[in-house]
Amino acid sequence: MRISKLLLAATATLALAAGAAQAQDTLRIGTEGAYPPFNNLTADGQLVGFDIDIANALCDEMKVKCEFVTQDWDGIIPALQAGKFDAIIASMSITEERKQKVDFTNKYYNTPPAIAAAKDSGINGVSKEDLAGKTIGVATSTIHYNYSELTYTDSTIKGYPTSQEEQLDLASGRIDAINDDISVLEEWLKTPDGACCHIVGTITPIPEIHGPGAGIAVRKGETALVEKFNKAIDAIRANGKYQEINAKYFPYDVYGG
């Protein structure tokens, strides 16, 4: 039984190794596909969003072919480490906690976190007291989860696999508020589903938790790739490509100060 298992693993591995060897100059980009307007899937299964456009622009700049791989958020760093893709471009905030496991490029955008709640919820602010006794939905393994868990100790924190699920539950009234990136919340509030709710305020970012913004993550020690990405980010910021993509999705500058 052992032998047949090993054989199987070996053949599978060899087949895949051959496949990987052919495609050396393509860069595989991991993304989530459930975080509109940054990265999400359309009805015909296409990945779209700010992250995707930025990734494509960066790949053009670096003269490599990019291939996208979708991966659930809470497994996205292990999947990177396991070699399922070479970089994560999925609005991942640069934090000290993550830096122990992966290397980051410079930020490619930075927008503040915020809280959205039902219009009739009576929640008027984002302080611990404002949300005491309420149920807050947050996507797990995010800076927002870490922040909520630390700050809103008098509230019930519910962890969701993606932002879209926490939105579904806020719309149906299962939870009272959600904590997420302001651009993501605003995008959702524009949809019919978001009519129930509004933004009650933005959260002042805490550097130790929220970090300097979203960066591109690569495996530890791949400094050459980080350098290439950093140069490409600078290049698209300089040649106007970044601003073009920014304007396509947001009426304000998402790069931040």
Binding site: A9, A12, L16, A17, A20, A21, Q81, A82, G83
Partner: peptide, 18 residues
């Protein structure tokens, strides 16, 4: 991760994907 580290012993540049 296990298979990866085994293969790396033989061929350091190989990227294995299960």
């Amino acid at each position: 991760t296990g298979i990866q580290s085994l293969v790396k012993l033989i061929r350091p540049d190989a990227m294995i994907e299960v």
